[in-house]
Write a protein that binds this DNA or RNA. Structure first.
Lengths: 143, 143
DNA sequence: ATCTTTCTGAAAATCGTTTTCAATATCTTC
DNA sequence: GAAGATATTGAAAACGATTTTCAGAAAGAT
């Protein structure tokens, strides 16, 4: 709940201003657990607030990413998506190649094996991404 | 070594033609184990063959991907890269965020755990991507 | 060799993203 | 609460990577 506060602190710390658009965008972004592209969030916002601009939505999403509220993701469809980041929790994705459904998961064993691989190659991991692409429950069944 | 044959078979099967440019691009692509972007391969080719066109390189790389000789990858730098695919072998990547070094690795245990996760969510995996981002051996050390 | 079809390379178009700019809103400070 | 300084907004233009168009060239079939 204090992601709003977190964002406001971030803004004032950087000498940025708290505007009605930024409040609105954050609110809408947090409302749904979806993985928004700029376009998608822009279209959703425009229904209720026709005067909002695409650039503003995009710039604000970038700010979310910068302050850690959101993370930029790319699932190979040519659109950058922003997902809400919850504290230190880390998760990966199952992506349905047919309907676009995105499911999040976490697997501690996989994480550990990743660390092992990295150390074998003398790498210091900063972050990672793991995505499994395939057919979801619904798209698997014939009809 | 029969990736050349594989490509030729693919071409004739689709009613496409075997041209000097396609031969050249495939040869150069296979020569190095690098992860080429269209731009990089284009620049490399142009040194020896100044008349080759960017579009031709790009179209040919797409053909490689289509016939399974290459795979498209995206490491988050805004450029699509094409990497040589060796038969059924599957591998993932360690990417150095400082110098751009890309190391390939394979880990059977991780693959198995992925399958497990997928089945828990009723997914049928078609493919996956796993990338570990961090500092490589050289970039870790102070100087 | 001729004919049909595909291919090539240059340039233009496209797509998502980012920047520019004049008008507007926010945040001081008085 | 008004004035001034600074950041923000939205529309449009710019941008970079990728894709398409098109007329001339090359490949493969007849």
């Amino acid at each position: 709940m204090d992601r709003v506060k977190l964002f406001n602190d971030f803004l004032s710390q950087k000498g940025l201003k708290s505007t009605s658009q930024r409040k609105l965008i954050l609110e809408t972004f947090l409302e749904s657990a979806s993985h928004y592209s700029t376009e998608e969030l822009y279209l959703k916002l425009r229904k209720e607030h026709p005067r909002i601009g695409y650039a503003t939505v995009h710039r604000t999403l970038k700010l979310f990413a910068e302050c850690g509220i959101a993370a930029e993701r790319n699932f190979g469809d040519g659109q950058t998506r922003f997902e809400s980041v919850h504290a230190d929790e880390h998760h990966d994705h199952l992506v349905c190649t047919k309907c676009g459904l995105i499911i999040e998961f976490e697997d501690q064993k996989i994480e550990e094996l990743q660390k092992l691989v990295a150390s074998q190659h003398n790498f210091k991991i900063e972050n990672h991404r793991l995505e499994l692409y395939g057919l979801c429950k619904h798209c698997r069944s014939p009809k």
